[in-house]
Design a protein around this nucleic acid. Structure first.
Lengths: 345, 345
DNA sequence: TTGAAAGCGCTAACAG
DNA sequence: CTGTTAGCGCTTTCAA
């Protein structure tokens, strides 16, 4: 491509070592030769070959990011913040999408190692002790976001279970008497890392179990829209009936809220509710999880749980850089979550 | 890190060339030695150092992607599709966000060249002959998306002007008699590459100019919401008046449509319209541009223009790979756009 | 203040 | 079928 230190050395009639010293500005060097070298370098547009440098230093200043896909707004925001932070710290990012494919995830990680990234930020689809062993065997540090693997591998996230618990608590305070929890098919929990959704489901369950009078439903599956439809039709009817006949009681009897393990579920459901003529929050309350940015365009304003994406991203980069420099940050870092009021419950 | 070919060679008591042959599976080699080498390689977990390989081959199999930011859904979708396509073709992607910062853009491109990416996909914020010269001087190919630079630099996109023209045409067919075009501050057109928005504005203008009875307004600025508010208040009043008093004429007189140079503008405006009590499309029509995925969650369904993000991404990768292999694709490639009906006009 | 030499891990041309 | 040699562009002792 361009000119090399070797050629500059030849032109200036000095050794490559001297050229290096001039370029780096360190070590003793005659000001005149230095000036000459720098002039030649500038004139000829010298640019260091970072590949060659990395081969020696053992550092590429690249971090790899592996996530599901970035049409998923949560990951788009995550990647955006990761890139910003990494850039600030002098690192570049390699992105690969594993698309919830376990094999592909391994292949990508291996290839990142081969490409000599200095560390990896991973939202894993794999799980279990074997995968844990695999990650621990890698020659570079990995920090995990989103889905937990093991306490041996640094994890950054929020306390999902606690957050879900609090969300349900809030719904109960709002006098909902029937709570439907919607999340992805947990039947795949053995073959996919569904940690975050499992935790949310657990938080929901834990809080629900404390109540004896609250009816609860767990919908977990591809067909959640249809299942929900059946669940809700009666509820809406009841609610409307109440409103007409016994307005005082309408807030007490059979008020249903749908709590979704992810804003996208909530939005999809809201769209259908709209089609079905079920009003939010009058007929049924709805609550999401993640607080993705697109909510700002949706009305009514979705009640949700803030997932601290940006802080997770920043902390992930910071902790990874620490690890790459042999500092040991905390293994598990829970960042603050917040319940976002909204107007759908 | 792991074991090297040199060490394998020593263990197997052969030369590194032989090890290479075994590993690559090419060239004549004794099946036994080959088997032995492969066994050792597997046992010791040999992995090639791609850095070292790249240093020799001159190819890193990486492509750089430079866009504004990926909280912008258009770019998130673009990057997603670029990564998918690149991965299919055996390339990896380096992502950098230039955040509409002209200096940063140059710095990023320079650094990508230093890092020896094989080519770059760029949505430029810079423009003009100097920048064109800079891009052409790079030792690697660049393909441009979104904002045009010059006919010398490969560009992939849709015919924005034509698409805007058709969109306005459609609005006119729907009997709108007043069309407001909203786009980002074109006052920055000298310091920023606003090509796509300028083209859309031009298409709008061209079609409008063909009509003598159509009123048109161009709103371009940060404060577009307030400006629009004033423009619309009267319109809504008129329209409502019509509906009440002269229903037959309501489709004819002063029907206003807001055509936005980007779906995000349209969504932001819709949100405000909602707050102002102005109904869409009854009181005012609204049309976006881009057809970003989040529209699927918005109701009413936004009328918009499909921007062919995925095909642009795919074509960009394909053309870049062609360029890297010294094939010369077309300099300018317009992909098909579509007007998406929706229910907001 | 400067330079020689060695080497990062791999590839490739050529010779045997 | 196998090995030798040279080198990618840079960094880093160590010696002068």
């Amino acid at each position: 491509m361009g000119i090399t230190t070797k050629e500059i050395a030849k032109i200036c009639e000095v050794s490559r070592t001297t050229v290096d010293r001039a370029l780096k500005g360190r070590g003793r060097i005659n000001p005149d030769t230095k000036a000459k070298i720098l002039t030649v370098a500038r004139e000829r547009g010298y640019r260091p070959d970072l590949l060659a440098r990395s081969l020696i230093t053992g550092k590429t200043m690249h971090i790899g990011v592996v996530v599901f896909d970035i049409r998923n707004y949560y990951f788009a925001e995550m990647l955006n913040s990761i890139e910003n932070r990494a850039y600030e710290k002098g690192y570049y990012v390699n992105i690969n999408l594993q698309e919830e494919d376990r094999e592909k995830e391994i292949h990508i990680i291996d290839s990142m190692v081969d490409r000599r990234v200095d560390g990896i930020i991973l939202c894993p689809v794999n799980k279990g002790p074997e995968f844990e062993k695999y990650i621990l065997s890698l020659p570079i540090p990995v920090v995990v976001i989103g889905n937990f693997i093991s306490s041996q591998i640094p994890f950054i996230g929020i306390n999902e279970k606690q957050a879900a618990y609090e969300a349900v608590d809030m719904l109960l305070k709002k006098a909902y008497s029937r709570i439907i929890f919607v999340c992805p098919p947990l039947v795949y929990r053995d073959s996919k890392n569904l940690y975050s959704h499992e935790q949310r489901a657990a938080g929901f369950q834990e809080r629900i179990n404390m109540e004896s009078t609250i009816e609860s439903v767990l919908i977990t599956g591809m067909d959640y829209i249809n299942i929900l439809k059946n669940e809700l039709k009666s509820a809406a009817a009841d609610s409307k009936f109440d409103t007409l006949e016994q307005p005082q009681l309408s807030n007490k009897r059979q008020r249903t809220a749908v709590f979704c393990s992810g804003d996208i579920y909530a939005l999809t459901i809201m769209k259908h509710l709209n089609e079905w003529g079920i009003r939010v929050p009058d007929d049924v309350g709805i609550m999401g999880f993640d607080n993705i940015h697109i909510l700002e365009f949706i009305s009514p304003q979705l009640s949700t749980v803030s997932n601290a994406v940006e802080s997770v991203a920043i902390t992930a980069v910071d902790n990874l850089v620490d690890l790459m420099n042999n500092k040991k940050p905390e293994k598990i870092k829970f960042l603050e979550h917040h319940i976002i009021g909204g107007s759908t419950v």
